[in-house]
Design a protein around this nucleic acid. Sequence first.
DNA 1: CGGCTTTGACCGGCGC
DNA 2: GCGCCGGTCAAAGCCG
Length: 306
Amino acid sequence: MDCSSWINTSLDLNINSHRVYEDVLQKKEVENNFFSLGLRKSSVKEESNGALVEELKRVSAENKKLTEMLTEMCENYNTLRSNLTEYMRNNPDNKEVISTSKKRKSESSNNNSNPLGVNGNSESSSTDEETCKKPREETIKAKVSKVYHRTEPSDISLIVKDGYQWRKYGQKVTRDNPSPRAYFKCSFAPTCPVKKKVQRSVDDPSILVATYEGEHNHPISSQMEATSGSNRCMTTVSVPCSAPTVTLDWTKSKSSCKESKNMNPKIHSPEVPQILVEHMASSLTNDPNFRAALVAAISGQMLPKN
DNA sequence: CGGCTTTGACCGGCGC
DNA sequence: GCGCCGGTCAAAGCCG
């Protein structure tokens, strides 16, 4: 995975595009010169050329903005990555398998040390201390992942649409969070072992934190439902059991690049496994659709609209 | 009537 | 051993 590769590609694209338009501009200038030398240009042609030049200037400015955006994105990525690297250096042994039975202990200790407690991080993040103390490999091998749903503040339901069919089997108010936690089992397939816990974030009640345990042994029941939540923005961070939980608040990502420095990715847990970020970046980098969309977006900004 | 939700009871792990 | 706590069970109620 190499962020710079696609960034470079994009930049190359920009540069090339610049060149294309500069070529066009030069041709026009040559053409103008030719006309000015030999023939009298018509005023109509002058106007259209002037308009083209203006358009070129505008497009160049937009292109410059896009370039800056890309640069800033890359900078943000590098910052995140350096933080990760630093974290990984400080916490080299962070591959421990968590145990649900140790959760409580972890939570109570985390509540003291990390009053933020957003999204119940304490559930999936284990302190270095405890991971060193009590490794229990045989406990939960099931994949644990978290999904963050941004909901309307008025939406008090604990329903997270993820495309699967769930049956609620319990609800509990936990100690560290005044909002109740709902327990779901996958009811699409009787043999599906997946469980889900849904609870509102302590810090931001508009965010639903869904914790998935296990993996579905059946196809998604409704792919459409997964993306149909109009008022919800879902971010999935698939965490291999013990990895610290990350919240990437993409709901703000559509904002301008100026905001992107303030915009998160909101990392509720200060530590993010590098491999996770790399995986995410790799997914984007290798996704031809993403590239195509990026190229389309850039070229759509640059090409003159008819 | 079947499936789902609600909710109090129960169970087991953990700390003291 | 006891109390606390999270997780689960299961009866009752609701709804289409």
